[in-house]
Amino acid sequence: MTTSTNPQDSRRLPLRRPPYDDATRKTIENTAFRGLSPLNLRLSMAHHPLLASRFQAIAHAVLFEAEVALRPKEIAIIRTTARAGAEYPWGMHVEIYGERCNLDRAMADELAEAADWQALSDPRWTDEDRLMVRLADELHERANVSDETWSELNAKWPQNQVIELVFACGVYRLASYYTNTTAVPLEDGQAHFPEGHRKG
């Protein structure tokens, strides 16, 4: 196994260090982000370049090619990763996308801490926002949604965008599994869970 003395390294799966073959280098350098970027995730997944490239492709489709609007998608992702106790993807999405979709830190923290959609107390939450929390929670708890939730989703978004929202939750559930299990170290500059929130 590759070893590292990086003080920010994982306590489980060390970040991949040089030398890199061409396939590994490609997965590490493959990013659409400018500024804060999930480098530690790429360095961790570089231990398996094939799966890394496939994961990057589906995550890219969800983040950059989906037709559904940014705010509902990000609420679904942020709630999914919070429920999974996955601070790495939660904090990256809060930091990178929160301001872009009018989610300030208090709202992001409430997405992490609220018991359910009915417990969201900020008056700025819309019915659509609450539906995204319901979607994420039901998928987290049952790997399914109720008929009522399904009907409401399809009343608000076209079918392809409902599929995109389900995929957003699923892809970031996988990201939560991976970052929790391999203990991917947090990036400098990313947001942190509210004090006391379960960390994986």
Rank of each mutant, 00 (worst) to 15 (best):
Q56N: 11
A57N: 13
A57Q: 15
I58C: 09
A59G: 13
A59V: 07
H60N: 15
H60K: 14
H60V: 05
H60G: 15
A61M: 11
A61K: 13
L63G: 02
L63K: 06
L63M: 14
F64W: 14
F64A: 13
F64K: 10
F64D: 13
E67A: 14
V68E: 07
L70C: 03
L70E: 12
R71V: 12
R71E: 11
R71W: 11
R71N: 11
K73M: 11
K73C: 04
E74C: 02
E74A: 02
I75Y: 06
I75F: 05
A76F: 04
A76W: 05
A76N: 11
I77E: 03
I78V: 15
I78H: 01
R79C: 04
R79A: 10
R79I: 07
R79Q: 11
T80A: 13
T80Q: 10
T81G: 05
A82H: 01
A82W: 00
A82I: 01
R83I: 00
A84F: 02
G85C: 06
G85S: 06
A86N: 02
A86C: 06
E87G: 05
Y88K: 04
P89R: 08
P89T: 08
P89G: 10
W90R: 03
W90C: 04
W90Y: 08
M92K: 05
M92Y: 12
H93F: 03
H93L: 07
V94Y: 00
E95W: 00
E95L: 03
E95P: 00
I96C: 01
I96N: 03
I96K: 11
Y97W: 13
G98Q: 09
G98M: 06
G98D: 07
E99W: 00
R100M: 12
R100D: 06
C101D: 09
C101Y: 06
N102S: 15
L103G: 06
L103K: 08
L103S: 06
L103W: 04
L103T: 08
D104K: 13
D104Y: 12
R105G: 01
R105L: 14
A106M: 01
M107E: 10
M107A: 14
M107Y: 00
A108Q: 09
A108K: 03
A108W: 01
